[in-house]
Design a binder for these strands. Structure first.
Lengths: 254, 254
DNA sequence: ACGCCCGGTCGACATTGTCGACCCACATCA
DNA sequence: TGATGTGGGTCGACAATGTCGACCGGGCGT
């Protein structure tokens, strides 16, 4: 059976469509967006609803994602070995650096945040676990692009939107930057994603010395950088954390 | 087309199976667990993998849940209106009560946690968003069972496992408890789920005055209770929060 | 009151997923 | 080192299955 299962592909496309559109979508919207017959779309939606993957607003009849996805996404985190190993180390990283710590893995054409430790102060922060970040302008993304060949080719195909004035959008400059990241072993993002925000990240390796993710910190550029660039204390803390997680994964000492 | 789509049901069953088993499962395990032919199972798994819903360990060939589920689960939270409205109020609730605040909705035979605010101290806490809690022994679950008829019937069919010595397992006693919850408008769990831990919760209503969820706080029984039972200050805070969220949802004043 | 739009249903058709036997790689064990 | 069992993956025939487009019925705005 060489071909993938059509109905499943379509169901996945529906879920992605519902995830993309901010608000609820009607049956006809979904059907026309995907070029499917209404009857077909309805059958898939009905099954997805029965399984808890989508919910239907009883008054408007429109569809949205369902709670089962949240439950399964949580189960994904439970099984995730990299995340499990990184929990305690990223906690320490956030504490010692005084900034928010992130753990990301490559997913499709971006970085999926699988763990996020709040900056250790009492400010109100929103959890970004499950969110995606672009490859070309974040520290996590640059590190993955530099060390993981798959991420590198994904980055080449991704959209190069300029999020701030400092975002690199020229592939040649990006390659230069990646060479720098590879040479010194860590990556940075200096106001290339959000104005006033900088981040630093380093790669995490598994027992076969393959890059499997990246850890980093993000914070106000005034705190993260000094006159020389990224504060070396932060760089050291991030790299220490990455090495510790790698060692936990069995990569051995460097 | 009266029947639901078979391949989708099977795919959902596979995902749930992978979510349940703690570790990765092999193709044959999955096939035999669900009573499917290996070829069929492989086709579904391959499609799910291609769509990012499952991942395969390249060395062992075993399967586990995929990252796309985390992304979609996160998108579910983005769309969730109840959660969006409750964000700021639960934050205040945690701050004023000094305990961890939770927002839960009915999902299948349990309470799905859709929002969780850490207890406002510097202790290490794990986020429980996406986790499930039982209906019969938690404050959130009792409140939903008392006010939502669907939750009530689900509770009747759920397993009545005794998690501590104080867990209610007699349906008659549970009904009495629910009557009390309905009468006073809030529910409690005094060491019925974890020893030493108590919780208080109150229902949240939507614009049609239908119960759509519950908010509550959970903490050490010594802090939550005094000689009289649950501290009235906490009960007031929780009920205020529930009313505020309900008002935000359009339920109007009580 | 009319007509449009939308969610939902129905039945015929053939596409599509399913089944079970088969294959190959790897590891185990004698 | 060869026999052997396990486990992931493939193949091709069959018919069960999902798909399509036409068709309802209600709600809403005109």
């Amino acid at each position: 059976m060489p071909g993938p299962i059509q109905s499943l592909e379509r169901a996945a496309a529906i879920l992605r469509l519902l995830a993309g559109g901010e608000r609820r979508l009607g049956l006809s919207d979904v059907a026309s967006s995907l070029g499917l017959a209404k009857g077909t779309t309805h059958g898939i939606l009905r099954t997805l609803q029965q399984e808890g993957f989508v919910e239907q607003d009883p008054v408007s009849g429109k569809y949205q994602l369902g709670a089962e996805l949240l439950r399964l996404g949580n189960s994904y985190l439970d099984v995730h070995e990299l995340r499990a190993r990184a929990l305690v180390w990223t906690d320490d990283l956030a504490r010692s650096s005084g900034e928010a710590a992130y753990l990301g893995v490559l997913h499709q054409q971006g970085v999926l945040i699988v763990h996020h430790v709040f900056r250790p102060d009492d400010s109100r922060q929103v959890l970004e676990v499950g969110a995606m970040q672009p490859l070309h302008c974040t520290a996590l993304g640059k590190v993955l692009s530099a060390f993981d060949p798959v991420a590198h080719s994904e980055a080449a195909e991704a959209e190069w939107t300029a999020l701030t004035a400092r975002t690199l959008t020229d592939p040649a400059l990006f390659e230069e930057e990646l060479a720098l990241v590879r040479a010194r072993g860590w990556g940075a993002d200096l106001e290339e994603t959000w104005d006033g925000v900088a981040s630093v990240a380093a790669p995490v390796y598994d027992r076969r010395r393959m890059p499997v993710g990246a850890v980093g910190v993000t914070g106000a550029v005034e705190r993260v950088c000094d006159a020389e660039g990224v504060r070396s204390r932060l760089v050291a803390a991030v790299r220490d954390c990455a090495r510790a997680v790698s060692r936990d994964l069995g990569a051995g000492r460097f």
